[in-house]
Amino acid sequence: MYNHDGHDIFVVDGHMHFWDANPENWKNKYGESWIKCFHAFHSGLSPAEEVWPFNKFCRYGEEVLVNDLFRTGYVDMAILNSTYLYEFYKNGFNSHVQNNVIKAKHPDRFILCGSFDPRDEEAGVEAFRRMVAEYPIQGLKLYTAEWRNGSRGWRLNDPWAYKYLTLAQDKNWASRTSTCTRGPPSTR
Protein backbone atom coordinates (compact mmCIF):
# COMPACT_ATOMS: atom_id res chain seq x y z
CA MET A 1 0.00 0.00 0.00
CA TYR A 2 1.19 3.47 -0.82
CA ASN A 3 1.90 5.57 2.20
CA HIS A 4 1.46 9.31 2.14
CA ASP A 5 2.00 11.43 5.25
CA GLY A 6 1.44 8.41 7.44
CA HIS A 7 -1.78 7.39 5.68
CA ASP A 8 -2.11 4.12 3.83
CA ILE A 9 -3.62 4.60 0.40
CA PHE A 10 -5.10 1.70 -1.53
CA VAL A 11 -4.05 2.11 -5.16
CA VAL A 12 -6.05 0.69 -8.08
CA ASP A 13 -4.51 0.89 -11.53
CA GLY A 14 -7.70 1.59 -13.41
CA HIS A 15 -6.59 0.54 -16.86
CA MET A 16 -3.82 -1.84 -17.74
CA HIS A 17 -2.88 -4.53 -20.21
CA PHE A 18 -0.71 -7.48 -20.87
CA TRP A 19 0.12 -7.55 -24.59
CA ASP A 20 2.06 -9.43 -27.21
CA ALA A 21 2.97 -7.37 -30.26
CA ASN A 22 6.28 -9.07 -30.95
CA PRO A 23 7.14 -9.26 -34.66
CA GLU A 24 6.49 -13.05 -34.66
CA ASN A 25 2.90 -12.29 -33.71
CA TRP A 26 2.33 -9.67 -36.43
CA LYS A 27 -0.21 -10.91 -38.91
CA ASN A 28 0.31 -8.08 -41.40
CA LYS A 29 1.60 -4.51 -41.70
CA TYR A 30 -1.17 -3.29 -39.41
CA GLY A 31 0.18 -5.34 -36.53
CA GLU A 32 3.49 -3.60 -37.01
CA SER A 33 2.21 -0.07 -37.50
CA TRP A 34 -0.29 -0.34 -34.64
CA ILE A 35 2.32 -1.10 -32.00
CA LYS A 36 4.73 1.38 -33.57
CA CYS A 37 2.09 4.05 -33.20
CA PHE A 38 1.73 3.27 -29.49
CA HIS A 39 5.48 3.24 -29.09
CA ALA A 40 5.61 6.67 -30.71
CA PHE A 41 3.10 7.93 -28.14
CA HIS A 42 5.14 6.36 -25.37
CA SER A 43 8.36 7.90 -26.71
CA GLY A 44 6.84 11.29 -27.36
CA LEU A 45 5.07 11.64 -24.03
CA SER A 46 7.53 10.05 -21.58
CA PRO A 47 10.52 11.66 -19.93
CA ALA A 48 13.57 10.59 -21.97
CA GLU A 49 14.99 8.42 -19.19
CA GLU A 50 11.76 6.42 -18.99
CA VAL A 51 11.49 5.57 -22.70
CA TRP A 52 11.68 1.87 -23.51
CA PRO A 53 13.40 0.59 -26.63
CA PHE A 54 10.94 -0.67 -29.22
CA ASN A 55 11.80 -4.35 -28.75
CA LYS A 56 11.02 -4.14 -25.04
CA PHE A 57 7.80 -2.27 -25.74
CA CYS A 58 6.55 -4.93 -28.16
CA ARG A 59 5.63 -7.36 -25.43
CA TYR A 60 4.50 -6.51 -21.94
CA GLY A 61 4.65 -9.92 -20.31
CA GLU A 62 3.62 -11.34 -17.00
CA GLU A 63 6.97 -11.11 -15.24
CA VAL A 64 7.66 -7.46 -16.10
CA LEU A 65 4.08 -6.48 -15.50
CA VAL A 66 3.83 -8.04 -12.04
CA ASN A 67 7.16 -6.53 -11.10
CA ASP A 68 6.31 -3.05 -12.37
CA LEU A 69 2.93 -2.96 -10.69
CA PHE A 70 3.27 -4.79 -7.41
CA ARG A 71 6.94 -5.25 -6.53
CA THR A 72 8.71 -2.06 -7.53
CA GLY A 73 5.43 -0.24 -8.10
CA TYR A 74 2.83 0.71 -5.50
CA VAL A 75 -0.29 -0.75 -7.10
CA ASP A 76 -2.56 -2.87 -4.91
CA MET A 77 -5.02 -3.97 -7.55
CA ALA A 78 -5.22 -3.54 -11.31
CA ILE A 79 -8.03 -3.68 -13.82
CA LEU A 80 -6.77 -5.99 -16.53
CA ASN A 81 -8.31 -5.30 -19.92
CA SER A 82 -8.70 -7.51 -22.95
CA THR A 83 -8.13 -6.17 -26.47
CA TYR A 84 -8.17 -8.92 -29.04
CA LEU A 85 -7.09 -7.47 -32.41
CA TYR A 86 -7.11 -10.82 -34.18
CA GLU A 87 -6.97 -9.09 -37.56
CA PHE A 88 -3.55 -7.64 -36.69
CA TYR A 89 -1.96 -10.27 -34.44
CA LYS A 90 -1.89 -14.01 -35.03
CA ASN A 91 -2.63 -14.90 -31.41
CA GLY A 92 -4.33 -11.63 -30.69
CA PHE A 93 -2.92 -8.60 -28.87
CA ASN A 94 -4.27 -10.16 -25.69
CA SER A 95 -7.45 -11.99 -24.75
CA HIS A 96 -9.38 -12.76 -21.61
CA VAL A 97 -8.08 -16.33 -21.90
CA GLN A 98 -4.45 -15.16 -21.86
CA ASN A 99 -5.15 -12.54 -19.23
CA ASN A 100 -6.79 -15.11 -17.02
CA VAL A 101 -3.52 -17.05 -16.85
CA ILE A 102 -2.03 -14.03 -15.07
CA LYS A 103 -5.14 -13.43 -13.01
CA ALA A 104 -5.18 -17.10 -11.87
CA LYS A 105 -1.69 -16.71 -10.40
CA HIS A 106 -2.56 -13.46 -8.63
CA PRO A 107 -6.31 -13.73 -8.09
CA ASP A 108 -6.52 -10.93 -5.53
CA ARG A 109 -4.53 -8.49 -7.61
CA PHE A 110 -6.56 -8.30 -10.80
CA ILE A 111 -10.04 -7.42 -11.90
CA LEU A 112 -10.41 -9.17 -15.22
CA CYS A 113 -12.33 -7.55 -18.06
CA GLY A 114 -13.82 -9.36 -21.02
CA SER A 115 -15.51 -7.80 -24.00
CA PHE A 116 -18.20 -8.14 -26.63
CA ASP A 117 -18.53 -7.11 -30.24
CA PRO A 118 -22.01 -6.16 -31.46
CA ARG A 119 -21.02 -7.24 -34.96
CA ASP A 120 -21.21 -10.83 -33.72
CA GLU A 121 -24.94 -10.25 -33.28
CA GLU A 122 -26.91 -13.31 -32.16
CA ALA A 123 -24.01 -15.66 -32.86
CA GLY A 124 -21.91 -13.92 -30.20
CA VAL A 125 -24.46 -14.14 -27.42
CA GLU A 126 -23.66 -17.74 -26.58
CA ALA A 127 -19.91 -17.03 -26.63
CA PHE A 128 -20.47 -14.05 -24.37
CA ARG A 129 -22.47 -16.15 -21.92
CA ARG A 130 -19.76 -18.79 -21.97
CA MET A 131 -17.01 -16.24 -21.37
CA VAL A 132 -18.85 -14.90 -18.35
CA ALA A 133 -19.62 -18.38 -17.02
CA GLU A 134 -16.17 -19.86 -17.49
CA TYR A 135 -13.92 -16.95 -16.59
CA PRO A 136 -13.86 -14.68 -13.54
CA ILE A 137 -14.98 -11.70 -15.62
CA GLN A 138 -15.86 -8.66 -13.54
CA GLY A 139 -16.13 -6.00 -16.20
CA LEU A 140 -15.89 -5.19 -19.87
CA LYS A 141 -13.50 -3.32 -22.04
CA LEU A 142 -15.18 -2.14 -25.20
CA TYR A 143 -12.81 -1.33 -28.01
CA THR A 144 -14.92 0.21 -30.72
CA ALA A 145 -12.09 0.61 -33.23
CA GLU A 146 -11.42 -3.10 -33.67
CA TRP A 147 -11.27 -4.08 -37.32
CA ARG A 148 -13.30 -7.04 -38.50
CA ASN A 149 -14.13 -8.36 -41.95
CA GLY A 150 -13.67 -5.03 -43.69
CA SER A 151 -15.38 -3.06 -40.91
CA ARG A 152 -13.20 -0.50 -39.13
CA GLY A 153 -15.17 -0.49 -35.94
CA TRP A 154 -18.55 -0.16 -34.34
CA ARG A 155 -20.58 2.33 -32.40
CA LEU A 156 -22.03 2.08 -28.95
CA ASN A 157 -25.47 2.99 -30.28
CA ASP A 158 -25.55 -0.23 -32.32
CA PRO A 159 -28.75 -2.05 -31.21
CA TRP A 160 -26.68 -5.19 -30.63
CA ALA A 161 -24.38 -3.26 -28.28
CA TYR A 162 -27.49 -2.43 -26.27
CA LYS A 163 -28.46 -6.08 -26.24
CA TYR A 164 -25.03 -7.14 -24.94
CA LEU A 165 -25.01 -4.38 -22.35
CA THR A 166 -28.38 -5.63 -21.16
CA LEU A 167 -26.88 -9.11 -20.77
CA ALA A 168 -23.97 -7.58 -18.87
CA GLN A 169 -26.34 -5.68 -16.61
CA ASP A 170 -27.85 -8.97 -15.53
CA LYS A 171 -24.44 -9.88 -14.19
CA ASN A 172 -24.61 -6.79 -12.04
CA TRP A 173 -21.06 -5.71 -12.64
CA ALA A 174 -20.96 -3.89 -15.91
CA SER A 175 -21.74 -0.49 -14.48
CA ARG A 176 -18.89 -0.85 -12.03
CA THR A 177 -15.99 -1.55 -14.30
CA SER A 178 -16.98 -1.10 -17.92
CA THR A 179 -14.50 0.92 -19.85
CA CYS A 180 -14.76 2.06 -23.41
CA THR A 181 -11.89 3.29 -25.48
CA ARG A 182 -12.14 4.83 -28.87
CA GLY A 183 -8.61 4.21 -30.22
CA PRO A 184 -6.57 3.38 -32.27
CA PRO A 185 -4.40 5.81 -30.49
CA SER A 186 -5.30 8.86 -32.47
CA THR A 187 -6.81 11.36 -30.09
CA ARG A 188 -9.54 12.25 -32.53
Binding site: S33, C37, R152, P185, S186, R188
Partner: peptide
Protein backbone atom coordinates in the same frame (compact mmCIF):
# COMPACT_ATOMS: atom_id res chain seq x y z
CA UNK B 1 0.81 12.26 -41.06
CA UNK B 2 1.97 11.97 -37.43
CA UNK B 3 1.12 8.26 -37.38
CA UNK B 4 -0.25 5.71 -39.80
CA UNK B 5 -3.27 5.49 -37.48
CA UNK B 6 -4.41 9.10 -37.74
CA UNK B 7 -8.20 9.09 -37.94
CA UNK B 8 -9.37 8.16 -41.42
CA UNK B 9 -11.81 11.06 -41.74
CA UNK B 10 -9.16 13.62 -40.81
Amino acid sequence: LPTSWCAVNF
